Computed example of a mutant assay.
Amino acid sequence: MVITGKVALVAGGTSGLGLAVAATLLAAGARVVVTGRSAERGAKALARLGDGASFVAGDISRPADVAAAVARARHDGGPHIAVCCAGATAAGRVVGRAGPLPLTEFERIVRVNLVGTFDLVRSTAAAMAGDGDGQEDPSADEERGVIVCTSSIAAYDGQQGQAAYAASKAGIAGMTLPLARDLARHRVRVVTVAPGLFDTPMLAGLPARARAALAAAAPHPGRLGRPEEFAALVRHIVENPMINGEVVRIDGAARLGSGH
């Protein structure tokens, strides 16, 4: 898809990977609607992004908030591109010192990461399909939309304490191909990116020794990923029509150990 002139919705676009994606798509000529839970972070994101960006406050685990973000993108003439970088993380062993992991905590992570991602996919896909009849047209090469989801290498290499997080991210990876097959008749692509360890605000507060240990997990390059590298992959996915129904790891060949 040619990005110039398109409208992109970036969930979780006020910081980290999502903010880098928003900046990259703006630079490529798109108008961008970013969402996030914090109005303060939203204002800071808009100050950084500048013209062509707008913000809608909302939580991806709330269907009404997702609908409001999609409505804003529709108002702007889209969405043609949707990128889900919103999510939550948590650590907790199945059986810890306080007993079994609370079921509510497992449900919370799955609701935010997996259910929230699916809600964004279904809502943006419906908007992209528009009034089309959904019938296959072999001669029509123009696509109506591209949706990029975010999984994690934890979907494959989950560590101790990551049962809920790994399950939610594995769910995203597992639904990618069925989503792409479902939406092919509407000429909408679905691709998932599974990032490794990236230098985002989530890791910024860690001690230097801990950050160095995480960086060493990647054989080459032996460092944390940069958000702009994630964003560059998202841009390539949007622009390359043959990437569809795939989960792409971006991790410097890192494989997570069992943890401690």
Rank of each mutant, 00 (worst) to 15 (best):
M202P: 01
L256Y: 10
L26F: 08
L46K: 09
S61C: 04
G29A: 08
G5Y: 07
V56Y: 01
H236D: 07
A253E: 13
S38D: 15
A129Y: 03
R235Y: 10
V83T: 02
G58E: 02
G77V: 10
I81T: 05
D182C: 02
A155R: 06
G158I: 05
T89S: 15
A204G: 04
G257R: 14
F106R: 01
A253I: 04
D137W: 08
A208I: 03
A47R: 14
Q159H: 08
R181S: 03
G132D: 10
A215R: 04
V7S: 05
M202Y: 12
E239V: 10
V32A: 04
T124A: 15
A170T: 12
R249A: 13
R122L: 01
A210D: 12
N244L: 02
A91D: 05
H186R: 07
P79W: 12
S61D: 02
Q160W: 08
A98N: 10
V148Q: 05
S61N: 03
F230Q: 01
R97K: 12
N113H: 09
G196M: 07
A8G: 02
V34Q: 05
L49T: 04
T104I: 02
V94M: 13
S151Q: 10
E40F: 14
E239Q: 14
A204P: 01
L26M: 06
